[in-house]
Amino acid sequence: MFIKQLKYDLLFGRNTFFTMAAIVIGWGIIMGNLDTLLQDDHFFMGAMFAFGMTISMTVVGVLSIMQVFQLYRKSLFGDSGYLTLTLPVTRGSLLASKIAASMIWYLFMIFAGFIMVVIMVLQIEGAFIVTDSNNFFVNLLAFLLYIVFIGLFLISVLFFATTLAHSSFSNKRVHSVVSGIIGFVYIAVFFRIYNTLNQRSWGETLVEGVSSGGDVWSFTRMGPLIGIQYGRIPVGPETDAVFIDIYAHALTLAFAAAAIIATLYLLKKRIDLR
């Protein structure tokens, strides 16, 4: 049953995600060939293209979040909820399918972003240079773990806040604004603890993760994304070891699990489809 649900959940928004991925990759091709495209009027038009790309990426990011939100809200609490919530499947299975589909689309968009970077680097530098081949795969693994766990956490909180807005306590519906605030506070508390553990801000970490290493684009810059000062385990070679922080990941998974358990409770015991 789970696979069948996942099939239909993935069908929802498929066209939108493929279109957005095409836009992202399209920008990689444009920006990679900017020198050829612009020729003389380099500075002004270059700035305009960079501005256009920034706007596009922001829109794609927002649309991706909206699409994941709609996948959940429409199929469970819109008119389709009368079908979805009355299927002969458990609420746990319904939730697992929505999370899995959202994670697949989230990782798909991350992959599209990666392809965009690779295309740009290949066209600008002529080759994708790995400056530290010893740590390349460990860094890649560390980066993927970070992306997967943070994505799972954010999707779980989004689903929790959405479910809360459609649940009832003492026969009173929880207002959607209140649900949104609760979700926001939950995320803020998580990042406060996470950053204390990491000794750095999340924004700073992210910027470091995706920035270029001088004149050579490199994956090795993503290493510090996961490595922290305390509670870390080395997974790379002894020299210049890369660290995957089990505490930070455990914290992320614990917060995600709490949101999922709370969502499941609401779906089972407090649902109020009006």
Binding site: L85, T86, F169, N171, K269, I271
Partner: peptide, 8 residues
């Protein structure tokens, strides 16, 4: 209620 759409 019969359809499980209201739990409270």
């Amino acid at each position: 209620t019969v359809m499980g759409l209201l739990s409270d």
